[in-house]
């Protein structure tokens, strides 16, 4: 689910880049220095996850894991995804440099939303945390597909048609991501539960 170079009109590409830059700055300011190792680990997970391809009919789709990154990083997720996308763009030729802003919004916003949802609804019990983690993983991918349709609609495509296609193509990804997120959350609950307690602060901590 990457938008390629030259698909979006120039105005949309510039606008999404500006909005992404704003979010990136916001995310950067909310990333404490002590969290950097965790951010680096999840950035590399996000970077590598895109190489896991799931065969789907004639084409294949790959994992995205914005939901998992968002749930585990909170506000820092946007930073992690930005770095991961830049490297994917440069090394794997996913998307393109001019579409980077749009791709960043495409993955970053669902990640932030997943972080917010996970922070507010994770509750105390293990079962609930695992369930909410799975919902974040699957839901973020669905949200991503809808954003993709919205962005492509700005380039003159039919929104409903693209949305249907994007959602249909990502049904297996949604399921796998929900499963992967649930597995990671349950594993972390056993091994290092404090990793799941990320404060999702909207106000800047100075």
């Amino acid at each position: 689910m990457h938008i390629s170079d030259g698909v979006l009109p120039t105005a949309v590409a510039l606008g999404t880049s500006a909005v992404s830059a704003g979010f990136l700055l916001w995310s950067l300011r909310r990333t404490p220095a002590d969290d950097l190792p965790k951010v680096a680990v999840l950035t590399s997970a996000f970077f590598v996850a895109s190489l896991i391809h799931l065969p789907f009919g004639p084409t294949s789709v790959h994992l995205l894991i914005p939901g998992l990154v968002g749930a585990l990083l909170g506000p820092s997720a946007f930073l992690a995804i930005a770095l991961g996308l830049v490297l994917q763009c440069l090394l794997f030729q996913f998307g393109g440099l001019t579409a980077l802003g749009a791709n960043l919004l495409l993955m970053g916003l669902p990640a932030l939303l997943a972080g917010l949802v996970f922070y507010h609804f994770k509750g105390r019990s293990k079962k609930q945390r695992i369930l909410v983690g799975a919902l974040c993983g699957g839901g973020a991918t669905i949200f991503s597909a809808l954003l993709l349709a919205l962005l492509l609609a700005s380039g003159g495509e039919d929104f409903i048609g693209v949305a249907k296609l994007a959602l249909l193509a990502h049904i297996p990804v949604v399921l796998v991501e929900a499963g992967v997120s649930a597995m990671v959350v349950s594993f972390l609950l056993k091994v290092k539960p404090e990793l799941l307690d990320i404060p999702f602060v909207l106000k800047e901590k100075m």
Binding site: A33, L36, P37, V39, A40, T43, S44, F47, V48, L51, L83, G84, L87, Q88, L91, F92, Q93
Partner: peptide, 25 residues
């Protein structure tokens, strides 16, 4: 298709950058 080289390069970049930032901090 990205090969192993690209993957290792990317991971090196990520950890290297985070290392530089941590050092500065």
């Amino acid at each position: 298709a990205p090969g192993w080289k690209d993957v290792v390069t990317g991971l090196g970049f990520i950890f290297g950058l985070s290392g530089v930032v941590m050092m500065v901090n």
